[in-house]
Simulated scan of single mutants.
Amino acid sequence: MAFRDLIAEVDAAVFETLADIGFIEGRQVLGMFSAPWLQPSVGRLNTGLREPHFVIRVGDSDGVEKAQRVTIELPAMDGGGEYTVVRLEPDGAGQVALVLRMSA
C-alpha cells in the first residue's frame, strides 16, 4: 500500500468520526471548522479581524470557488452560521483550508 493511500484511509476515519458538517452552496461536506476567538493585533491596535477556517479534503473541494456561500452546522456560540469563501489554501497533503468571512 502506498503512503498516500494509507494517509487517505486515516483521513477518512478521522473525518467520519470528528468532522463538523458544512454545506457549500447546499452540498454537504465534512470538514474541521475553527474560528479564532482572539483578535489578531498590529502593535497595540486590535484589528477586529477573524479568519475562520473550514478544512476539507481535496476530493471535496472540486468546484469550490471564492465568494461561494458556506453554512457551518454548529451552534452560534461555537461559530456556526453563514460564511463566504475568501480564499482556498491547499496544504499539499490532501486537505484544503477554506478561509471564510462571516456573511452579513
Score class of each variant (00 low, 15 high):
1 M>T: 02
1 M>N: 06
2 A>K: 07
2 A>Q: 06
2 A>R: 04
2 A>C: 05
3 F>I: 09
5 D>M: 08
5 D>T: 09
7 I>L: 14
8 A>V: 04
8 A>E: 09
11 D>K: 10
11 D>W: 07
11 D>N: 13
11 D>C: 02
12 A>C: 05
14 V>Q: 10
15 F>M: 15
16 E>F: 02
17 T>P: 02
17 T>F: 14
18 L>V: 10
19 A>S: 15
20 D>R: 01
20 D>N: 13
20 D>G: 00
20 D>W: 04
20 D>M: 02
20 D>F: 03
23 F>C: 01
23 F>E: 15
24 I>Y: 04
24 I>K: 01
24 I>E: 06
25 E>T: 06
26 G>P: 11
26 G>E: 14
26 G>Y: 12
26 G>C: 09
27 R>Q: 13
27 R>C: 04
28 Q>V: 10
30 L>Q: 12
30 L>G: 08
31 G>E: 10
31 G>M: 12
32 M>L: 15
32 M>V: 11
32 M>E: 14
33 F>V: 09
33 F>I: 07
35 A>V: 07
36 P>W: 07
36 P>C: 08
37 W>Y: 10
37 W>T: 15
38 L>A: 15
38 L>H: 15
39 Q>C: 13
41 S>G: 12
42 V>T: 13
42 V>G: 10
42 V>M: 12
42 V>F: 14
43 G>Q: 07
43 G>T: 08
43 G>E: 11
44 R>D: 12
45 L>T: 09
45 L>I: 10
46 N>A: 14
46 N>S: 13
46 N>T: 10
47 T>A: 04
47 T>C: 01
48 G>L: 08
49 L>F: 11
49 L>G: 08
50 R>V: 03
51 E>I: 05
52 P>N: 08
53 H>K: 14
53 H>L: 14
54 F>D: 01
55 V>S: 12
55 V>I: 11
56 I>G: 00
57 R>Q: 15
57 R>I: 09
59 G>P: 04
59 G>T: 11
60 D>T: 09
60 D>R: 07
61 S>A: 15
61 S>H: 11
61 S>T: 07
62 D>M: 08
64 V>F: 00
64 V>Q: 00
65 E>F: 00
66 K>R: 14
66 K>I: 11
66 K>C: 09
67 A>C: 09
68 Q>Y: 01
69 R>G: 02
70 V>A: 02
70 V>F: 06
70 V>K: 01
72 I>P: 02
73 E>A: 15
74 L>V: 00
74 L>E: 00
74 L>Q: 01
74 L>W: 00
75 P>F: 11
75 P>Q: 10
76 A>T: 04
77 M>H: 11
79 G>Q: 06
79 G>E: 06
79 G>Y: 02
81 G>D: 05
81 G>P: 03
82 E>C: 01
82 E>A: 02
82 E>S: 09
83 Y>I: 03
84 T>Y: 08
84 T>D: 05
84 T>L: 14
84 T>F: 07
85 V>C: 06
86 V>D: 07
86 V>F: 04
86 V>C: 00
86 V>M: 04
89 E>Y: 02
89 E>P: 00
90 P>H: 05
91 D>M: 07
91 D>I: 01
91 D>H: 04
91 D>A: 06
92 G>T: 03
98 L>V: 02
98 L>A: 04
98 L>K: 00
98 L>I: 01
99 V>Q: 08
100 L>F: 11
103 S>H: 12
103 S>K: 12
